[in-house]
Design a protein around this nucleic acid. Structure first.
Length: 473
RNA sequence: GGUCCCAUCGUCUAGUGGCCUAGGACACUGGCCUCUCACGCCGGUAACACGGGUUCGAGUCCCGUUGGGAUCACCA
């Protein structure tokens, strides 16, 4: 019987769930789902100055939106200080850790000096051999790192990475205020929570040998590691606010579908042959760490936008209808709480979904269906609402008024008749009508628009367009 | 600066020594479709960072150079 696979996502609540964190969470989640494993969520909030409950909620919200459900947790490290302290005490008793009385100022000065002299920025081990406590100073606890030999990290993505122990610092595992630090808590929790695979950003690769030493000192089995390459901005710098939106929820506000973001993110560093678009089921089925690349990837908003458009095209219109309503409100197209005829809205969405890339665009594209009047684009009006097109519009009004029930066929017949009678191409009729109906020159098929608008509204808009022409000329 | 990681079109990537005259996707672009726009379809521009090896044969293996990134906190 094989050991149960358990992975975790361990964000620190010092900010919103950002793109990089979401990708790490996603890869863990996919690995868990693919392997029928457990996905644990752990909040690393031992930095009490910077961690907030609001950010915990924000991270949870982001994961929920993306559909990354966890099987256990969220656990909070602040609930577990007693556990960490017992491990720190154990190391102290074993002589694998010691009290250090050096002041932050002192250490900082030493670091600066080392930097200038071009040496490794490493704690000098001053307090390592100290026999007696220093009065009046509450010490930190440092882990006594072995100073000889080397530590190898067996990484599932990077391969074997070897570090000289000489490079390893005696890291602080407990602060002077008695709270534990990251390198201790991460090891203790991964042991305690029986994590078998640590999948995280490769900014942690350099920490890994230190953590391995901690595992060994504590006498625990070392989990498997997989360090994912970073996501960078267009300037190859680490993704930050300078590169635009980095918070996952900002993408919701911009009208992105979570499935599209997930699909885009998973392809940043992972591939499956030439396939670009994956359903969640396909991702779970095909995901593996072997197909994760080693190189950092640059976040490309254009491709994400394309991906979103693909998902909008594929989406069920009734689902889009639900999703677009908040955006209709936000765009001022409908009032909050305003009732809409949902089947009608769906048919309106069907005419737009293959030409809009975000839910915001979709909402905006619906405005000329929903609002009472249209605003003419100046150029469009000047080009198409002319004296020449006036009789065509008149003929359309007459034709449409004769129809009892609007259908694709009956509307098309009216347009074709008008074109024939006036000996012009359909375009000559359709473009002025399009401007009359929508105010602009780009839109879904003109027959579809008439059907969505309905006879009354269509005729009213044609009349108004005609009136505009006579006033002008 | 020390240590570590990485290196195929502008970007995401396929490629695991001969299938590569390097494939797909985004973006850009020419055309088709067409009532406009979009979708879709057909085509185009565009890459193995450089230098040494190893091999009958290298994008693929090794070394070096260059370039980029990460990390070196009483942050995580």
């Amino acid at each position: 019987m094989t050991e149960e696979i358990r992975v975790r996502f361990a964000p620190s609540p010092t900010g919103h769930l950002h793109i990089g964190g979401a990708r790490t969470a996603l890869f863990n989640w996919l690995y868990a789902r693919h392997n029928n494993a457990k996905f644990v969520l752990r909040i690393e909030d031992t930095d009490r100055a910077r961690s907030t409950d609001e950010y915990i909620d924000a991270i949870l919200e982001g994961m929920k939106w993306l559909g990354l459900d966890c099987d256990e947790g969220p656990f909070r490290q602040t609930d577990r200080f007693a556990v960490y302290n017992s491990y720190a005490d154990k190391l102290l008793e074993q002589g694998r850790a010691y009290h250090c009385y050096c002041s932050p100022e002192e250490l900082d000065a030493a670091r600066k000096k080392a930097m200038i002299e071009g040496r490794a920025l490493k704690y000098n081990g001053k307090c390592r051999g100290l026999k007696n406590p220093v009065e009046g100073i509450s010490p930190v606890v440092r882990f006594a790192m072995p100073q000889e030999g080397s530590t190898a990290v067996q990484d599932l993505i990077k391969g074997v990475v070897e570090f000289d122990n000489e490079q390893l610092d005696d890291l602080i595992i407990r602060r002077s205020d008695g709270t534990p630090t990251y390198n201790l808590t991460v090891v203790v929790d991964d042991v305690d929570m029986h994590i078998t695979h640590v999948i995280r950003g490769d900014d942690h690769l350099n920490n890994t040998p230190r953590q391995i030493q901690l595992y060994q000192a504590l006498g625990y089995e070392i989990p498997k590691f997989a360090h994912l390459p970073m996501i960078l901005g267009a300037d190859k710098a680490r993704l930050s606010k300078r590169h635009g939106a980095t918070s996952v929820m900002a993408y919701q506000e911009m009208g992105y579908l979570p499935e599209a973001l997930v699909n885009y993110l998973v392809r940043l560093g992972w591939s499956y042959g030439d396939q670009e678009v994956f359903s969640m089921e396909e991702l779970v089925e095909h995901f593996s760490l072997e197909n994760v690349g080693k190189a950092a990837a640059i976040f490309n908003p254009e491709k994400l936008l394309w991906m979103n458009s693909q998902y909008i095209i594929k989406s069920d219109p009734s689902k889009l209808a639900e999703l677009v309503i908040p955006f209709l409100v936000k765009e001022g197209i409908i009032q909050d709480g305003q009732e809409l005829d949902m089947p009608w809205l769906c048919s309106a969405i069907i005419t737009q979904q293959e030409r809009q890339k975000t839910l915001i665009e979709l909402a905006q594209s619906l405005s000329y269906y929903i609002e009472e009047d249209v605003q003419y684009d100046e150029k469009a009006k000047n080009k198409f609402l002319t004296l020449e097109s006036r009789p065509l519009l008149k003929a359309l009004i007459d034709g449409l008024e004769m129809i009892d029930d609007l259908s694709a066929e009956s509307v098309e017949a009216v347009f074709n008749e008008v074109a024939e009678k006036h000996e012009v191409k359909l375009g000559k009729v359709a473009q002025p009508a399009r401007v009359a109906f929508t105010g602009i020159t780009k839109s879904p098929g003109i027959f579809d628009i008439v059907i969505i608008l309905g006879k009354e509204k269509s005729v009213r808009r044609l009349r108004k367009a005609m009136e505009g022409i006579s006033e002008n000329e």
